[in-house]
Nucleic acid binder design. Structure first.
Length: 217
DNA sequence: AAGCGGATCGTCT
DNA sequence: GACGATCCGCTTG
C-alpha cells in the first residue's frame, strides 16, 4: 500500500530551493508553509526526495520543550544562528532527528521534520533503513517518524549538522514544486513532557504518511 | 489496535 | 548520574 500519491516533481523542480527569507520568520508560519515542500538529498549522482507531511515548531526561551529553552550550548548553537541551517540531534541512544533553524541570527527557533512521503530514491531509502521494501510494501516504514526520516536520508549529526539547506551546493536542501496541501491541521506535539499541550504540530490532513495514531479529519 | 518496556549514548546537572 | 523532540518487538485484548 501507500504508493506515492502526490504529484511527482521534475528534476528542475527538485532544484527550486527555498530561499533564506522563507526561514527568517517565526517557526509557526514556517512550519505551516513547509508542509507540501520537498526534502532533497544528493547521494552521489542520485537524488532522494520526499514530500514533507508533518512537522513541529519549537520556539525559544519561552518554550520549555525546546532544546533552546535553557540557553545556548555547544549542542544547540545552530538554533541560535541564522535561518535555514540544519540542526541535528541524537536522541535515546539510537536516533537522529532533523530540524531547520528559523528567525534571524541571535534569535533561537526551529522546526522538527517528523514525517514525509517518499517520492524518489525509494530503493536507496530502504537500503539506508535496512528494510526489504519489496516484501513489506509499506512505505510508511521508510519515512514516517523523525528517526526513520533521518535514517532514510542518511542524516547524521557528524555529516549534516550546521549544513546550509538553502542551496543545491549542499547535498541536502528543501525544494518547492508548487504543490500546496488541501488542508493543514495542528495538534499537540509528540513525545514531550513539558509544554505538551501547545498546538505546535502541523500535519497534512488525511495524509497516510503522517506518524503516530490517526487524526480525525 | 493499543500499551508496555528495552535498547543505547550524548548532553547537561 | 539522570534523562530524552524515538523505534521496535512483544503482549494483551
Amino acid at each position: 500500500m501507500n504508493k506515492p500519491r502526490s504529484p511527482s516533481p521534475t528534476r528542475d523542480q527538485l532544484r527550486n530551493v527555498l530561499q533564506r527569507e522563507f526561514f527568517d520568520r517565526d517557526p509557526r508560519p514556517v512550519s505551516h508553509d513547509l508542509l507540501g515542500k520537498i526534502l532533497v538529498r544528493r547521494e552521489g549522482r542520485k537524488l532522494l526526495a520526499a514530500r514533507v507531511v508533518e512537522v513541529e515548531a519549537y520556539l525559544g526561551a519561552d518554550d520549555p520543550a525546546a532544546h533552546a529553552a535553557a540557553g545556548r550550548t555547544a549542542r544547540n548553537a545552530v538554533l541560535f544562528g541564522p535561518p535555514g541551517y540544519a540542526y541535528i540531534y541524537f536522541i535515546y541512544g539510537n536516533h537522529y532527528c532533523l530540524n531547520v533553524s528559523t528567525l534571524p541570527d541571535g534569535t533561537a527557533g526551529g522546526v522538527l521534520f517528523r514525517a514525509a512521503e517518499p517520492l524518489a530514491g525509494i530503493e536507496d531509502m530502504a537500503l539506508l533503513r535496512d528494510i526489504d521494501v519489496a516484501s513489506t510494501r509499506d512505505l510508511r516504514l521508510l519515512t514516517s517518524g523523525p528517526g526513520r526520516l533521518a535514517e532514510a536520508f542518511g542524516i547524521t549529526r557528524e555529516r549534516d549538522n550546521g549544513k546550509d539547506l538553502t542551496t543545491t551546493r549542499s547535498d541536502l536542501w528543501l525544494a518547492d514544486d508548487g504543490y500546496r496541501p488541501e488542508r493543514v491541521i495542528t495538534t499537540k506535539r509528540v513525545g514531550i513532557t513539558k509544554a505538551a499541550e501547545l498546538p505546535l504540530r502541523y500535519l497534512i490532513a488525511g495524509n497516510p504518511f503522517v506518524s503516530g495514531p490517526r487524526v480525525k479529519t
